Simulated scan of single mutants.
Amino acid sequence: MFELGPALLFCPGDRPERFAKAAERADAVILDLEDAVAPADKAAARAHVAASDLDPARVIVRVNAPDTAEFAADLEMLDESPFRTVMVAKVEDTVPLDRFDESYSLIALCETARGVSAVARIAAHDRVVALMWGAEDLIASLGGTASRHADGRYRDAARYARSRVVIESAACGKAAIDAVHIDIDDALGLAAEAEDAAASGFVATACIHPGQVGTIRAAYAPDAETVAWARDVLAAAEGERGVFRFRGRMIDEPLLRHARAVSARGA
């Protein structure tokens, strides 16, 4: 199971001077060999990642899409490195995932129409520990021009993909990671989106700027009152059989599962 914490920070693979600071600021750093790196700088980025002395337990490496020439070179570098948590960009079927042996833990990035369509099969793959979705590449694959409305709300196609990823991940016992909020200055929008992600079952939100980390962590951490309620209702349940009344509410097993999740996040 994915257990790297709620705030995952992308860092360009060709900017090694930022690696350590990104790792310090976030719960895990995603060293990016894909979209954050220009084609001419891909080889240099691989060399920088390979030479990194970051703790492999807190590093995710995002590799290029399986249908690109860079994918094989990325895998060759990884085989010689200590990094074994890999985010595979633009996954559309399970065949490329078979290229990784059992030493790897994969995060499948479903960010195209084909990827979202195949998300159930992808989530079921043995190497996959988590799935993430991406709004901008998804809309581009649909021939669209914007993932959000003018007020910041996701368009229906993006909302559908987000829902599919969290549901199919849970169905296979895998974790789900929410997409980045690309408006760096929109702290209120990020907070609302991350709070919704945590309440909906996502275990983490990816981000693109260190300034977003604190907002995400706060959103995933339940407030003290909610944690206290969860622990109290779980304690009360120990002396009950089946459905019972607690502080004016009917409590059944689904609500107890909610309480267990809140209690775990508040630990």
Rank of each mutant, 00 (worst) to 15 (best):
F71I: 01
A72R: 14
E76V: 11
M77C: 11
L78M: 07
D79V: 02
E80I: 00
S81D: 01
F83Q: 09
F83T: 01
R84I: 00
R84L: 03
R84G: 09
R84K: 15
V88Y: 04
K90M: 12
V95E: 13
P96F: 10
P96V: 06
L97T: 00
F100W: 05
Y104S: 08
S105F: 02
S105Q: 15
I107S: 06
I107Y: 05
I107L: 13
T112K: 11
A113K: 09
G115N: 07
S117F: 12
A118N: 15
A123Y: 03
A124K: 11
H125T: 00
R127P: 02
R127V: 01
V128G: 14
V129T: 07
A130H: 06
L131A: 12
M132A: 15
W133P: 09
G134S: 10
G134F: 05
I139M: 13
L142E: 03
G144Y: 09
G144W: 00
G144K: 07
G144M: 08
T145E: 14
S147F: 05
S147K: 10
S147Q: 11
R148E: 03
A150D: 14
D151F: 13
D151A: 11
D151M: 09
D151P: 07
G152W: 02
R153Y: 01
R155C: 06
D156I: 08
Y160D: 05
R162M: 08
S163N: 14
I167S: 12
A171E: 04
G173M: 05
